[in-house]
Write a protein that binds this DNA or RNA. Structure first.
Lengths: 148, 148
DNA sequence: GCCCGATGAGTTGTGCACAACTTGATTGCG
DNA sequence: CGCAATCAAGTTGTGCACAACTCATCGGGC
């Protein structure tokens, strides 16, 4: 019983530590392109949707981040010339975030990033699949829990 | 090949998202005691070492945090009356962080926190063990990698 | 057409994380 | 001994995260 509790908190700490360790791996690699990890995540979402501009809310839903985090982040990406933000004509409340030429071009230049990061984890493909499954389930369980 | 890369980044995002989701679970529970998650982690380390005061560096080694993060955090814990910071007499460079009576007493009052959080993850004990193993290995692989 | 609740983005304030730097204490080597 | 290199903690500056809030816009019901 007590052991469960100790283990439970160790898993939480392990998650927290692993997450920070992984961004440590990303940092020097992304720094070559002047990006932070959350900025890179935003670009990944935009690259996936190719030429469709996304609203700030849509980006937030994909990354589970709110406008308080995204607004200043997107402003920095715009200042870097990677994205453009335009008020939607149809709905003046919305802001559409689209890639610039530079933002699209960056995709090719960063093609090797996942491989470089993946090799640093030292995990097999099977372990990555398993890890992904558990983590996604945890995240979803928590968010389902929260909405009730 | 391409699929590996996509999966690789999904695992990274899954880790990032799961870590934030879990602190979302902690937040309201810890808020009852006026604590943040990193502050709670510091107290866990101090509780484990019971009556031995720890230096800021020792805390940092346990949590993989540097003085830039810990110094202001410890100041807030001291302001809350949970810890005391005293310059070491033997080595004036060191600062020893010890628990106050209130800090020790909090341990009993927070005994149910791990159970409450653990149940929110929806994982079995076996999955928690597995997850812990993988995550710890990832973190250690990365840090070993870095020191070379 | 008008209002009222809801919605989307942005702002403000707090607290991590981390890099780069400062300051003061200590250690070890010649 | 003397002093240079090292070390521990703290400070400063940047960029997330997130809560709480503002503000403008939109949509539905009357």
């Amino acid at each position: 019983m007590t052991e469960d509790l100790v283990l439970g908190r160790q898993v939480c700490f392990a998650l927290y530590a692993a997450s920070r360790a992984l961004t440590d791996v990303y940092r020097p690699i992304l720094d070559e392109h002047g990006l932070t990890y959350p900025q890179y995540l935003v670009l990944l979402v935009l690259w996936e949707h190719d030429d469709d501009a996304l609203t700030v809310s849509a980006l937030g839903a994909a990354l589970r981040l709110d406008s308080g985090t995204l607004s200043p982040l997107l402003k920095r990406l715009e200042a870097a010339g990677l994205v453009v933000r335009t008020r939607s004509a149809a709905d003046e409340r919305r802001v559409e975030v689209g890639l610039t030429g530079r933002g699209r071009a960056l995709r090719e230049r960063m093609g090797d990033v996942p491989r470089r990061v993946g090799s640093a984890t030292g995990l097999t493909e099977a372990e990555l699949v398993f890890l992904h499954g558990i983590l996604t389930r945890v995240t979803e369980t928590i968010h389902r829990h929260k909405e009730q």
